[in-house]
Nucleic acid binder design. Structure first.
Lengths: 343, 343
DNA sequence: TTGTACGCGTTATCAG
DNA sequence: CTGATAACGCGTACAA
């Protein structure tokens, strides 16, 4: 059915009465080729509708010009922003991007890593899942000299470039802000502590409390998976305590949102009775009522940076002697959910 | 640097004193191989840390087990949901997914299509950009027998499977709902009319108006790129008209949001003075105040379906004689921005 | 049930 | 500056 055979460099060579290697060189802008023949070759290649077969070139050069990306969930604003940033930079450098999602499942993360390896991606950018506590599947890449860059949910145990936001400082600033607004009994709804972003946010929280001479009440510290449901359960639990919080620092905006919705439904005033601060600056946080105070996380820029770092590594083949640990600054955005008075 | 050479099927063969083809067959579960040798081969393959080189297999089989995806913008809830759905199904069928974004630029869309072709993706799932009015770069795929599936922003001019929501009916239901709520002078802020999703939403709008015996005022029809800024500009314009609208049907939630924000800021009551309905059911629409009535678009499911269709096509090699035009049902979600009374 | 021989389309090496 | 030749690692007729 008109299924015209693929045109190869040999077809071009034959038509021009030259060799395939000359065609290959011309198409790859090899400087050894005379301008005249190069022009002629490119012209007829275009005329014949030639499209290079990347697979063959890949096999030969042992490169795929492809970057693999592993995220917990594509369909989440922060992660899709990062992906968008990665794609932006990668595309402009001639790299394709293969996206995978672990769904926060360790098993899937392992399989994905295998697949990406089999596909011989030139590098991998990864944010680990909530279940991940072993890292052999990722070490495998660095052992084979395949560049690896972590972002957000980074792994301390592996040497690699890492990009994160200043989670400690974010937690600190959020908490300090609540204190400045008059909070004394501050609760924290955090994520799984095997992820260091959540450890650091908690540490920042504790540091700010300590600095203000406030006590961290064990009853006020909750850890879960930070879903809408988790948030609702957490606020219910907190409200049952004898000591009720006057402010809550949530480790993400999703939890903050569900807390706010629950409080509003139950006639508890925000920020008068309870103040709330989230983390990540999701799109909804600005527009919900009350709008959610939060910590901005520059996803797109993190993705761009991750792509830049990995491409740099890919190009200079051997692993860098010194790995960067890039910590992007966080920004506290004060909105209605925590604004009582000037701090 | 411990850079151990890649292990190939030849290494396994040598170690076991058998031929490479036997190893190849065993690893691919070819039924001709005896269970015993197959088991032995798989075992030593695992022991030696063998990972298949997909590139070589791809070159040989002329398949990549990769699906290319083109979307206008990754970082947008609807699209990232679709991508998530695609990845979900693709992964379970052994396909990798390469994601690209056109940024609604025709030029980039063309280049991306070329790249995907050169990468010999087995199929392409695409939602075209706002600028796209020519389709040669996409026709190229179907001409070469490379399966193509459109979703959401589909193209009438190309024969292929298409998945969209019932935009006409969505526009119709949204408008009819406004009419039932008592609206008489309904405005529409729509998208570029070269995209048929926006044409159909407009058509649905007009049909509902006609059915109710209401006149469509030309002054009340605005078309733009549906960004936050576009929405603000549009509502300003509408309010300057001598005839002011008592309801607005926006072709997406982003525009509806900016309209609502502008109205609230200017003391115009929603829904009492002006009712608003959006389209897509973005995450923020449920939680903003007033919450936004909208049309639900099942992104994840659309992605799953798109992946299923393309994988089916890829597997049965030759193009199907009959292309499906799947229209997913829309659902009207009534929220505060348009709820005055029972319809 | 297994082995042999070849080719997928490209690039790298070596001559010229 | 250009050409011939040999890989890259795998899958598959065909033969045994």
């Amino acid at each position: 059915m008109g299924k015209q055979a693929e045109i190869t460099i040999h077809d071009i060579a034959k038509k021009l009465g030259i060799s395939a290697s000359t065609v290959s060189r011309a198409l790859n802008n090899n400087p050894l080729i005379s301008k005249a023949t190069q022009a002629k070759i490119k012209e007829t290649a275009a005329k014949m509708g030639y499209r290079p077969n990347t697979m063959a070139a890949n096999l030969r050069t042992r490169k795929t010009n492809t970057i693999g990306v592993i995220v917990p969930l594509i369909n989440r604003h922060f992660f899709s922003s990062v992906i968008s940033g990665i794609e932006d930079v990668a595309y402009n450098s001639g790299f394709a991007v293969t996206i995978t999602q672990s769904n926060d499942s360790f098993e899937k993360e392992e399989k994905i890593a295998q697949t990406l390896y089999s596909n011989r991606v030139d590098g991998v950018i990864v944010s680990i899942g909530m279940e991940t506590t072993k890292f052999n599947h990722l070490k495998h890449f660095s052992e084979r000299n395949i560049p690896l860059v972590f972002f957000d949910r980074v792994v301390d145990e592996i040497e690699a470039h890492k990009i994160s936001v200043d989670d400690f400082n974010g937690g600190f600033k959020a908490t300090q802000h609540l204190i400045e607004q008059g909070a004394k009994k501050i609760a924290h709804i955090g994520g799984p502590l095997n992820l260091n972003i959540y450890r650091k946010r908690l540490d920042g929280f504790c540091a700010a409390m300590k600095k203000a001479g406030l006590e961290v009440d064990r009853q006020m510290l909750l850890h879960n998976s930070l879903t809408r449901t988790d948030g609702t359960n957490a606020i219910k639990k907190l409200l049952k305590n004898p000591q009720k919080p006057d402010a809550i620092f949530c480790a993400n905006d999703t939890t903050a949102l569900s807390v706010i919705i629950y409080l509003v439904e139950n006639g508890i005033k925000i920020p008068e009775d309870i103040m709330v601060v989230g983390f990540s600056n999701e799109p909804f946080s600005e527009v919900v009522t009350p709008s959610i105070s939060t910590i901005r996380q520059p996803g797109f820029e993190m993705g761009q940076k991750a792509a830049e770092l990995i491409i740099e590594q890919i190009k200079q083949k051997n692993q860098p002697s010194l790995f960067q640990n890039i910590v992007m600054p966080t920004e506290l955005i004060i909105r209605q959910s925590s604004f009582k008075k000037k701090g």
